[in-house]
C-alpha cells in the first residue's frame, strides 16, 4: 500500500510527544494551583519583586536596540546552517561529477555569510553608546559654547 507509508504518518510519534508535553504543562499548572495556598491578593503581593526594594517605574523598560542585531545574526546563521546541512546530507561534495563546481559555491557562500557576520561583530561595539565618546562630544560642545561666550579669548 502506497498510501499507508505516507511521510505524515511517520511523524505520529512526534504528535504523541507534543500531546504528552502539553498534558505535562497542564497537569503541572493544575497541580500548583491545587497545592498552593489561596491567600488574599493585595497590592503588596502583586507588585513587582525587586529583591526587597521598592519597585521604581514600570517593569517593561527599553533595552538598547543593539541586542536585536544578535537575533538577526541568529537567523542568518540558522538559514546558513539549513543550506549547509542539506549539502552535508548529500553526496555532492565527493561525487566526481559535481564536487569541483559545488565546492567553489560553498566557499563563496560561506565567505559572504561569514564576512557579514564578521562585519557585524566588528561594528557592534562601535554601535553602542560609549561613555568616552559621549564625554568627548560633550567637551567639544562645551568648548564651542565657551568660545561663543568669550570671543576675545576669555579672562
Amino acid at each position: 500500500m502506497m498510501q499507508t507509508s505516507r511521510l505524515f504518518l511517520d511523524f505520529i510519534p512526534v504528535i504523541i510527544w507534543a500531546l504528552l508535553a502539553m498534558a505535562l504543562v497542564i497537569i503541572m499548572l493544575l497541580a500548583s494551583w491545587v497545592l498552593r495556598p489561596h491567600v488574599l491578593q493585595n497590592s503588596e503581593k502583586t507588585s513587582t519583586y525587586e529583591c526587597g526594594e521598592e519597585p521604581v517605574g514600570p517593569a517593561r523598560i527599553s533595552y538598547p536596540y543593539n541586542y536585536f542585531v544578535y537575533t538577526v545574526l541568529f537567523v542568518v546563521i540558522d538559514v546558513m546552517g539549513a543550506f549547509l546541512w542539506l549539502l552535508s546530507s548529500s553526496t555532492l561534495l565527493w561525487a566526481n561529477a559535481t564536487k569541483y563546481e559545488v565546492v567553489w559555491q560553498v566557499v563563496v557562500f560561506i565567505l559572504i555569510v561569514m564576512g557579514g557576520v564578521g562585519f557585524v561583530m566588528k561594528m557592534i561595539p562601535r554601535s553602542f553608546l560609549d561613555g568616552k565618546e559621549t564625554l568627548d562630544v560633550y567637551r567639544r560642545a562645551k568648548a564651542e559654547r565657551e568660545k561663543e561666550q568669550y570671543p576675545t579669548g576669555g579672562h
Binding site: V69, L73, V76, V79, G116, V117, F119, V120
Partner: peptide, 10 residues
C-alpha cells in the same frame, strides 16, 4: 540578501 539585513541593522 542575508548580509544586506546585517548591514542594514548595523
Amino acid at each position: 540578501i542575508m548580509i544586506t539585513s546585517l548591514v542594514g541593522a548595523i
